[in-house]
Design a protein around this nucleic acid. Sequence first.
DNA 1: AGATGTGTTGAA
DNA 2: TCAACACATCTG
Length: 357
Amino acid sequence: MDTSSVGETTTSDSISMARISVASTLPVTKSPESPCRVGSGTSVIIDAEVGVEAESRKLPSSRFKGVVPQPNGRWGAQIYEKHQRVWLGTFNEEDEAARAYDIAAQRFRGRDAVTNFKPLSETQEDDVETAFLNSHSKVEIVDMLRKHTYTDELEQSRKNYGLFDGSGKRIMNKDGFFSSFGVGDREAKAREQLFEKAVTPSDVGKLNRLVIPKQHAEKHFPLKSGNNSKGVLLNFEDTGGKVWRFRYSYWNSSQSYVLTKGWSRFVKEKKLIAGDIVSFQRSTGPDNQLYIDWKPRNGSNVAVIPVPAQPIPMVRLFGVNIFEVPSNESCSTGKRMREMELLALECRKKQRVIDAL
DNA sequence: AGATGTGTTGAA
DNA sequence: TCAACACATCTG
């Protein structure tokens, strides 16, 4: 998945550009009740030889815009921007996917975007939803869609609307990134959003590791090739100015990039549960400081669930973020490697992971 | 292993 | 821009 590409295009320019290109497209006023199959969608063919129905690999086309079939019978939603596909998630029902597309379309292309249903149900002047959409970055909206939390979050927003300054706006920094995490808006330094991940049960479980999606790992935290077993230590600062040091390495066994040492402590202190979202940022300044942040699963906003961050002044602890870890691994096979990781972690359990100054 | 989401391509 | 399709990657 590449939601990061969304962030890069979060500019008013791209929005208006998209709007222009859409305007030249004729609105598809397809009635959901009149499914007109697009493309060559036959889902079943008859084997004349045997006279048996054989499943074709061909999947049924969707009658909805932005909806694509999945091999397992579910439906995917996607939208395109700047020649790139933005994946909006998978859904059980075709129309769910269509609604996801609609929401994305409105966020990406404005109110008058071509949609499957939206304009119909929206005639009731839903200013709150509009404000909600505008007050969240594209990345955030896409995230909610993919995790099926959009409705919940919108509902939350409705309930708490009065708690905002009225505009529903959030603070956006000069780079166009929204700061949606807790009270971190006080930071002065500009940050670049790298990626977010909704933590899985195993990410917060006893494996004591966080899997970094390969794509993000290789893009943002490249390891020197050939020396993957070594791993590196990465320092991340949270909103409270606390620095977390994680060991970052590649596990051959599962072919995945992971944060290991130090991660469980973070999970514990932040009380992370499956579905919560961790976010990684990097300073756009020369120091390349890395930041980590999180928010609850249902994306309850600041007004509802205060992040337990104290107004501690930020302290720059490390001029450099990355430290090479001496290679002390004597075995190199995947499984063994992973076992060693876990064992090593266990042994160091009592050791302080965070060097608070 | 099954589900998800990306790489890629051709059509519009 | 968009969807079809194959399949690499991820999750449980």
